[in-house]
Amino acid sequence: MLSVLLIVIASIFFTGIIIRTKSLASGRKGPGIMQPVLDVIRLFRKGVVYSETTSFVFQIAPTIYFASVIMAMLVVPFGQSRGVLSFNGDFIFFAYVLALGKFFSIIAAMDTGSSFEGMGASREALYSMFAEPAFFILMGSLALLSGHTSFQEIFAALHIGSQISYALAALATFVLLMIAMIESSRMPIDDPKTHLELTMIHEVMILDNSGFDLGLIFTAGYLKFAIYGALIVNLFIGVIPYQYAIPSFFAIQFVMAVAIGLIESFMARFRMSHNPQFIVALTSVSLLIFFGVLLILQKFM
């Protein structure tokens, strides 16, 4: 339960911090940190416009997308405390329930009959497909290292002791961070602030959503970020008592948000054709983690 609470709190500020960082980096004052949440509340109060082309799929898709993110949030633990749902292989459920949300957001984009949204849908399907093996190998390596197969047990059993495990934790952080970037469509995969529909991925898929539905999609996006942030935090706080763990949770989330803001301020998005290479490289990094784990366990004998 603790993790759900923390993730919700973090998600309220997370996107605001990114936007604030970006505006400060570009020399502007920028909106308040709460602005994204206020935007969502405003959207919840608005009417909606549906395209004539769309069917009921378009209307239920944001709901299912949002529900899938909530479900994913429920299995994420926080240090010693379990997630609301915790079972052997819960990370498989985590990945696949997020896939349910993606499935619906993709077909909702196809439902509008717009070529731009189809383009976004195609890219989303391709990139999330490439990102999946990286996640499964990462979790497999951690499962091998810790001898457990559920999020909470894995994270509780992870001891960052030797130097090589520091290296592994760094690599794992990198992989999770990049998966978070792909999943939430941020730089360097996707640029949420681009002005041309042709170069968007996620933003272009939701061009036709409005009102409550758009609010749900935004909220789900904020939550997704905080969920991956929580996973990264979990890599480090295994057995630390709560009075240190909770502040460090917020500290890491804050650092992550600032880092994303800085990356987005000083970096350009990759060329679309380079994205798959980048994401496949992520799989190799997670394979590297796997071999690192084999080294630790002295399997190369």
Partner: peptide, 25 residues
């Protein structure tokens, strides 16, 4: 595991395509 994950991702791509193109739009 890697293969199975990749199969899952590709299957999702395949069926979003099939459903999206045949029934939607």
């Amino acid at each position: 595991t890697m293969g199975l994950a990749l199969i899952g991702g590709l299957a999702m791509m395949c069926f979003t395509k099939a459903f999206g193109v045949v029934f939607l739009g």
